[in-house]
Design a binder for these strands. Sequence first.
DNA 1: TATTTATGTAAAGTGCGCTTTACGTAAAGG
DNA 2: CCTTTACGTAAAGCGCACTTTACATAAATA
Lengths: 70, 70
Amino acid sequence: MKNKIPTYRKQKGYSQEKLATMLGVSRQTVISIEKGKYNPSLPLALIIAEIFETKVEELFFLEDSDYKKI
Amino acid sequence: MKNKIPTYRKQKGYSQEKLATMLGVSRQTVISIEKGKYNPSLPLALIIAEIFETKVEELFFLEDSDYKKI
DNA sequence: TATTTATGTAAAGTGCGCTTTACGTAAAGG
DNA sequence: CCTTTACGTAAAGCGCACTTTACATAAATA
């Protein structure tokens, strides 16, 4: 899964740590999600979309590998 | 998290097993997600929304308990 | 130069998403 | 009746989402 979180985050002028605090997760979690190391849970993805005033589909993108994994 | 999956599923005339096959997951997974026993992964949620031609936000709803858990 | 801010990696632990297998129940149709 | 279809519960196992802690680097600034 790829995502546009860094773009939206910088647009708002948030650091990774600031965003982590707003989301109620660790800074490591934000880093790992931005880098695509793993996928956020659904509740977390919904909250991220809420914070950036957009939709989950606008922020996260399935890749071929995602379809195969499930 | 609550969801509208049963409604959309019945609208399409799919059994839980049929939906599970389409999603590439087990029937147990569909049952558990519909009943709210646990949340689908983000890739799975995106694929479900795709199948029902709607958005993740239309299908899944955060509750107070979700915000507290994270 | 020393410190602060922002970003990144690594590694070990916990809980949950999803699987498989098995069993139970109710409705519908042969 | 008997079988099929659809839905449901239970339980054990695996891998990943997320945590915490520690350490590293580069840029900005005092």
